[in-house]
């Protein structure tokens, strides 16, 4: 596929990388002087679909909702020093809060809860590119995507492919991967957004993040957990990448009991998580580094 397109993205990535280097904070000496292992707590959600409050009636009665999730996150943040709260997309659509407030309320509240990073799911396109342009840039956390080429749309230069967060003296690279839009989203809603192959985009970005010296590389994926057919999933991505340590998944609304440990292209371990939908579950993965 188009060499020109790929060239554009590479140039874009290089520009972004140059932009972010200056912002990076050098790890403090005291962190390195501390003895023992460093602990990092990852909290994650996906497909919250504007469920601000708990469900009423039906099988999820009295469960879920961002407001209840917020209470759990606050408690964990009090207990743990180093917490990252991440979301794997489809924040939009699902309750009247979306129809009335166009996702703006959701993004405002996610910012207040204190999300550290998020990505773009297919339902983020439900009010077209304008619906994204009007709302997502208001988030007080970075929203990353590495495989939607928006360069011919009004979203040009809006999203970075990745972000680097410094936590506990660890350098954490977080990138985003979105699902194929054709056949899933009305063409009028994604316009001239070009979809790039998730695997090749992931390989490019993770290599870049490795070069940047990241201790941990996380992919926020809206591909879906696993499919019977050939469609690209988190399983596909896990097996094809070399440097990604953790895939925080979404789209298939999969309720996992724990992250699945898979082998990457080089036989190293990759963890693949996903936490249902509607803020019905909070995923927690504690990681120790030495």
């Amino acid at each position: 596929m188009g060499g020109l397109k790929m060239q554009n993205r590479r140039t874009f990535i290089r520009n972004i990388a140059l932009g972010t280097t200056g912002l990076m904070v050098a790890p403090t000496f005291s962190t390195f002087a501390a003895k023992g292992k460093t602990k990092l707590t990852i909290l994650h959600t996906n497909d919250m679909h504007c469920h601000l409050e708990s469900f009423t009636g039906g099988r999820y009665d009295g469960k879920g909702g961002l407001t209840n999730l917020c209470r759990m996150v606050d408690k964990i943040r009090k207990q743990e020093d180093n917490v990252l709260l991440l979301d794997a997309g489809d924040m939009f659509q699902g309750t009247p809060y979306f129809n009335f407030y166009k996702g703006e309320l959701m993004i405002k509240l996610m910012s207040e809860v204190g999300y550290d990073a998020g990505t773009i799911g297919n339902h983020e396109f439900d009010n077209g590119l304008e619906g994204i342009a009007n709302v997502l840039p208001k988030a007080k956390f970075p929203i990353v995507n590495a495989n939607y080429d928006f360069s011919e749309t009004i979203l040009k230069d809006t999203f970075k492919p990745y972000t680097i967060v410094n936590k506990a003296g660890l350098k954490v690279g977080i990138y985003g991967i979105g699902i194929e839009l054709h056949g899933l989203v009305a063409p009028t809603n994604y316009g001239k957004t070009h979809f790039e192959n998730p695997v090749s985009a992931a390989l490019d970005i993770e290599a870049e993040l490795k070069e940047e010296g990241c201790d941990l590389i996380i992919c926020l994926s809206h591909l879906g957990h696993k499919y019977k057919g050939d469609d690209i999933s988190d399983y596909t991505l896990a097996g094809a990448t070399k440097n990604t340590d953790l895939i925080i998944g979404g789209h298939t609304h999969t309720f996992l009991k724990e992250p699945v440990a898979l082998s990457n292209k080089e036989g190293k371990q990759v963890l693949v998580g996903q936490a249902g939908w509607g803020a019905l579950m909070l995923g927690r993965i504690d990681l120790w580094f030495d």
């Binding site: 909702g65 003296g169 201790d215 803020a279 579950m281 995923g283 993965i285 504690d286 120790w288 580094f289």
Partner: peptide
């Protein structure tokens, strides 16, 4: 770079 040496998880209902 530091090595990831151990992990544990706890997925909880909200």
């Amino acid at each position: 770079t530091k090595e990831l040496v151990k992990y544990s998880s706890n997925y909880q209902d909200v």
